[in-house]
Design a protein around this nucleic acid. Structure first.
Lengths: 345, 345
DNA sequence: CTGAAAGCGCTTACAG
DNA sequence: CTGAAAGCGCTTACAG
């Protein structure tokens, strides 16, 4: 920014008749997170300094501060796609809470591409972020491992990389899908299949595992079937996927992500398959799109607020206490009931 | 970030047997936007330097760079709410294009509150952003004026503040709503009313003005009516708003924003008012929610990509050529047809 | 084409 | 409780 005449600590020091260092102390004590002052400054001089700072609308030069203190008070958040509602909601909450905690946040979207992940991490690191919240994509374990080696605080969000000693906040995906199976079977469906992504990430894997486990538990292993569509043009892929399903046999579908769920309902609609009579379903995450659909759709609700809150909390804690061991937080899903799990007789 | 042993320009200089300054020149020439080199470095030494930098995974310390060059290569983007799909799509596009242009972006959401706007601007400025893209909210003219006075490059997005000498990228809101009226009237509706926000921002004002102007032009001024709901809990507000409308008289509704449109369709649905027989409508922006609705809904489509692209382009141009006069870009809306504007006889 | 020097604005030990 | 000094890593004129 081209600032004609930015007021500096020196200007304030001159006017107050003290040293620049003292101004720095005074200023940072007001900004300090907890009540206690690290460097005690005479209350009187402090308030004189603050008054002058106020008068000139002094704003700290973050670049100088970061350079010297090796802290940027910025964190990087790397998501799959910030225009996906699940991630944009999380982004919004992180933004708000980070702001309150006096941090700014940089967002980046990977589109599930490891190259983008790498570029984003590099950029954010050169910007000097104090920590990273990351939704890992396929094949990015080595990248994240190298970040950890450099001692950068990292929290993995939504998806896990089990082999890494890293903080994580994830959903209990297995139990989520177990519950989905249970409800559908209780509702009168038997041949429950899953539509998932062709993507090697932990949440997808656990959702599939939960589905399989519960089907087995209910003695339905012989009808287990997971259809996988590739990430990208979902609407198209979904039409293709559904055309491979024999709906005379298949009773119900569980969709493994929010995007798949919305695309799925649309595709079923296009095929003229009536919910819940012809086919039952459970979605992952709610959507505005369901509100106007004639049948209320049951879905697995993720605690978005908790995701955001916990991830931020943990990354900040990790910044302030780098030696604490990494922790895993598994959040409980909430099943939201709907008519789409009740076959009408 | 606590970096045990970050490689600096000095380390590279030592290994290459040159001065730190030369390393800086060499590095920045590769990074330089256009082909021409500002400081010419011997090709051989340059490539030697680059090889060493590569070898040690050198990443520039942005804080130092910003402090010295007074450029951060960061821009701040202040929106109403990044979890609103219109804004999150714009955010995503800005993020991508900024990344390609070697800029990082900071996002902030105002929730239409001038205090938040002010805090965000202060924070971003202290972070040293090179420029700002702002969706102004009510009562923030003085704040933005003071930013302009400081010489900070600003582009206003989506909404205008006419009194300010500032760059802007906005929609031709008036023509958008004129068209909406035309289509509804052509489709057999007469008593067209508008549902808008109780908010003093330019786009809302122009949408209302367009509606009024076209109604007048068609000789329907006596049935002009604008209902205003307050920003916040839209679903609730919408129910309240609709309960004040006599649907024996009112023929059709134009909704002034995307949030109002979705809330509107839902509320009409709850009231059991069938589209398009009982009531016609035009939405502002499309929505996933409409895809599953039995009647296809006509809407005014905003060129989201252009919004993002042009705003970024202009803020960067303004950063590089601060003396160029401010310019206004008015984007054309696109009317997407649907059955909701055709009254069935 | 290359080097030495100054300095961006701040914080951080270190003395007093 | 307060001050003087050094230095974070880089870029930028200025000489050569």
């Amino acid at each position: 920014m081209i600032n004609k005449k930015q007021v500096t600590i020196k200007d304030i020091a001159r006017e107050a008749g003290v040293s620049p260092a003292l101004v720095s102390f005074a200023l940072n004590n007001t900004i300090g997170e907890n009540g206690q002052k690290r460097y005690k400054v005479n209350d009187e001089t402090a308030s004189r300094i603050l008054a002058i700072a106020e008068k000139y609308h002094y704003t700290q030069n973050q670049a100088a501060r970061s350079l010297r203190s090796r802290r940027s008070r910025a964190i990087g958040v790397i998501l799959s796609d910030i225009s996906n509602s699940f991630f944009s909601s999380i982004a919004r909450q992180i933004e708000d809470e980070a702001f309150s905690a006096n941090y700014t946040v940089l967002f980046g979207s990977t589109d599930e591409k490891p190259e983008k992940m790498e570029r984003l991490i590099r950029t954010f690191l050169s910007k000097g972020v104090d920590g990273l919240i990351i939704v890992p994509c396929e094949q990015c374990e080595p990248i994240i491992a190298s970040v950890l080696e450099r001692g950068v605080p990292v929290v993995l969000l939504d998806r896990d990389i089990e082999s890494l000693p890293v903080n994580r906040v994830v959903l209990d995906n297995e139990s989520a899908c177990r519950q989905a199976v249970q409800r559908l079977v209780e509702g009168g469906y038997r041949r429950v299949e899953m539509i998932s992504y062709d993507m090697a990430v932990s949440n997808i894997a656990h959702r599939e595992a939960g589905y399989r486990a519960e089907m087995a538990e209910l003695g339905l292993e012989e009808v287990v079937k997971v259809h996988r569509v590739s990430y990208g043009d979902v609407d198209n892929a979904m039409d293709g996927c559904l055309s491979n399903i024999n709906f005379e046999e298949t009773d119900a579908l569980i969709f493994a992500t929010n995007t798949l769920s919305v695309a799925g309902v649309k595709a079923l609609h296009r095929k003229g398959l009536a919910l819940p009579r012809k086919i039952g379903m459970v979605a992952f995450d709610g959507s505005e799109a369901f509100d106007l659909y004639p049948t209320s759709i049951a879905y697995i609700q993720q605690p978005v607020g908790q995701f955001a809150h916990e991830a931020l909390l943990r990354v900040i804690r990790c910044i302030n206490h780098p030696s604490e061991p990494a922790a895993t937080l598994v959040l409980a899903p909430n099943f939201v009931d709907g008519d789409s799990v009740r076959r009408e007789e």
